[in-house]
């Protein structure tokens, strides 16, 4: 009888305490969208570059892919473009592809930007921001390194500051 009572009270209080703790915990972690992290499968996408060619991420299986999200009005994005261009020229034949995804500005703005910077790698425009959402991009710039199996090998948020850093990134995903 006495034991029974203690057992009843303990179990009721435990259930109540557990629900309270769980709820408070769920509330504290709520609103955080699941972020992509190293080791995750990169979300597939199909985007058209400014020359009208379609690029599908999964088509590059077997190669490493550097996906750089950028905008013309982002100063750091602008600075790192020349570094990316240099890597692109060096690595073109070594199985590493560079895709620069603009976050959905107008073609005119992007084209004028490209004229100024003479970039040769594919620049894609994510007009509907679906890819930006899928990768959870915020803030700019952010660079995803995707290995030949389609897994994320690295994420770099912020500017690529020098050539060495850019080369190391490429090295990471060389097939």
């Amino acid at each position: 009888m006495k034991k029974n009572r203690l057992f009843m009270r303990t179990s009721i209080l435990t259930v109540l305490a557990a629900s309270v703790i769980l709820t408070v915990y769920a509330n504290l972690t709520k609103g955080e969208r699941p972020q992509l992290k190293v080791g995750d499968v990169a979300p597939d996408f199909i985007l058209t570059d400014l020359n009208g060619n379609k690029h599908r991420l999964s088509d590059y299986e077997g190669q490493g892919v550097l996906v750089n999200f950028w905008a013309t009005y982002c100063k750091y994005c602008e600075k790192e473009m020349s570094l990316l261009e240099k890597q692109y020229q060096d690595q073109k034949d070594q199985g590493v592809q560079i895709l620069a995804v603009n976050i959905g500005e107008t073609d005119l703005v992007i084209n004028r930007f490209l004229e100024k910077h003479e970039l040769t790698f594919p620049v894609l425009n994510d007009r509907k921001q679906e890819v930006v959402d899928a990768f959870g991009v915020n803030p700019l710039p952010v660079t995803f390194l995707i290995n030949k199996h389609g897994f994320i090998a690295g994420i770099h948020t912020g500017e690529i500051t020098d050539e060495k850093m850019a080369a190391e990134m490429i090295e990471k995903i060389k097939p």
Binding site: I12, L16, V20, T23, V24, N27, L28
Partner: peptide, 22 residues
């Protein structure tokens, strides 16, 4: 209204409801 302590306050009212009633 989403502060942890406010939520705990509401939760404690819930606990009090259960125990008092039983």
């Amino acid at each position: 209204y989403s502060q942890w302590w406010y939520m705990i306050l509401i939760a404690l009212i819930g606990v009090s409801l259960v125990v008092c009633s039983l």
